[in-house]
């Protein structure tokens, strides 16, 4: 009997079973990163940096060389690698606790130096791994284990818009915010990743793609409704789009 392969797992992913919860979009984002590296034929010379958070174990999931970084330090680790291996492709994969809180300095300064790396930034408005604490990106009124009455602007500040902030940094080349809540947006997100890795491959400088993501378990919302919650609550505060693209001139 003849069989025809109509879909297979990307060669950019290993045989490991992804450990993420149902309804979490880390899996889709992993797949997009892996497919992009394969499509652009970059996989064999790529080093990925896993960070601290739910994605910490993804050094097992991607099939390229991987290095695990301390909490928030992935852009510094990526800098260290890229400066001694400038022809490699180097990306970090960081959540919003990792990048927007403890690692904000490393992220800003990697962009500021125009490091020729790509940051895959996954924003689900909460700390997932450590048990649902408030993140800088947690929305106003959102309940977390450290904002049990809902985030309050007076004592906990307003949610941080990372892409908007990074776009202000003169050294950054490409900043885009995407979402993976439906197939149309998944395709758009993949295009954004392709653009970012292509920029890196052409040595045009720093790129960051922010993904609006979900955390059904810590949000306490079922997987299907979580997608709706992200669309209804996150995207209005974190609008999708290209925030900076130096390759077409500054806006």
């Amino acid at each position: 009997m003849n069989s025809k392969v109509i879909y297979e797992k990307s060669k950019g992913l290993s045989d490991f079973h992804l450990s993420y919860c149902p309804g979490c979009t880390h899996g889709i984002i992993h797949k997009l990163v892996a497919e992009t590296l394969v499509d652009l034929d970059l996989l064999e010379r790529t080093v990925g940096i896993s960070s601290v958070g739910c994605s910490a174990l993804n050094y097992d999931f991607f099939s390229c060389d991987m290095q695990q970084a301390a909490h928030g330090r992935a852009p510094a680790v990526a800098t260290g690698i890229k400066r001694v291996r400038p022809d490699n492709i180097v990306f970090t994969y960081q959540g919003d606790g990792d990048l927007a809180s403890i690692g904000i300095a490393e992220a800003i300064h990697a962009a500021h130096r125009g490091e020729n790396i790509t940051i895959v930034f996954v924003n689900n408005a909460i700390y997932g791994m450590t048990g649902g604490q408030m993140a800088p990106t947690t929305l106003l009124g959102q309940k977390t284990t450290t904002s049990q009455d809902g985030r309050d602007a007076a004592s906990q500040g307003l949610p941080l818009r990372v892409s908007e902030m990074m776009a202000q940094i003169p050294g950054a080349t490409y900043i885009e915010r995407v979402s993976v809540h439906d197939p149309k947006h998944v395709n758009k997100a993949k295009k954004a990743l392709k653009k970012a890795f292509d920029i890196q491959n052409k040595k045009l400088g720093f790129s960051m793609i922010e993904f609006i993501s979900t955390c059904p378990v810590n949000w306490g919302i079922n997987p299907k409704d979580s997608v709706d919650w992200a669309v209804d609550n996150m995207i209005p505060y974190y609008p999708l789009g290209v925030y900076k693209d130096k390759t077409v001139g500054e806006k």
């Binding site: 291996r85 490699n88 300064h109």
Partner: peptide
Amino acid sequence: FVQSESEVAAINMVYGAAGA
């Protein structure tokens, strides 16, 4: 040669380059 943004960043750059 990179003058890093902090000591913390510097040593993590060292970690990256050593890993490579």
